[in-house]
């Protein structure tokens, strides 16, 4: 059951109120989002008002209250990546998926976010898909990778 998994995360963080951000990070990693019922459970277990957990959950970009896609695409729009055409990649993805940054496609396959500088400006524009970094990207290359991911999915089913 879920509770056991969450308890493990709480245990790892010493059941400590002060570690709430770390706890939420772990939840985000395990579930790809912060499920409401889990936030309520944590609030009760650690005796933190739900309003405060909600406040933190909506403050940081790293957290999401809605499930993220199987492939989580991040496009860097930091200054260096932006001037080299990162924004064109972002535009392309918006149109291709018909979603805005922060949203997920209906089939749950892709979600897309923009970020501000990943600290790898020299090889920008950067696109990150799940944990993998792609440098010197443009629209064409992005399109190709996404095609590949879509095909992979078709193969599976």
């Amino acid at each position: 059951m879920r509770k056991l998994e969450v308890d493990k995360i709480l245990e790892k963080n010493g059941w400590s109120k002060n570690k709430i951000v770390g706890i939420l990070q772990d939840i985000q990693d395990s579930y790809s989002y912060l499920p409401e019922d889990i936030l309520i459970y944590i609030s009760e277990k650690l005796n933190i008002p739900l309003s405060q957990i909600y406040s933190i959950s909506t403050f940081y970009r790293a957290f999401s209250l809605k499930p993220k896609g199987k492939y989580r695409i991040k496009v860097c729009l930091g200054t260096a990546c932006h001037v080299r055409g990162g924004y064109m990649i972002a535009e392309f993805l918006k149109n291709k998926f018909g979603i805005l940054p922060g949203e997920t496609t209906e089939d749950g396959l892709f979600s897309f976010d923009t970020v501000n500088c990943l600290g790898a400006c020299a090889i920008g524009p950067i696109v990150v898909i799940n944990e993998k970094y792609y440098g010197q990207m443009d629209v064409r290359k992005t399109e190709k990778i996404i095609k590949g991911l879509e095909n992979e999915k078709n193969k599976q089913f």
């Binding site: 008002p49 309003s51 405060q52 909600y54 406040s55 909506t58 403050f59």
Partner: peptide, 14 residues
């Protein structure tokens, strides 16, 4: 939060 001790509401988003 401080006076009532309930914390029913908070700031959200940013």
């Amino acid at each position: 939060k401080e006076i009532i001790g309930v914390s029913a509401i908070s700031f959200s988003q940013r």
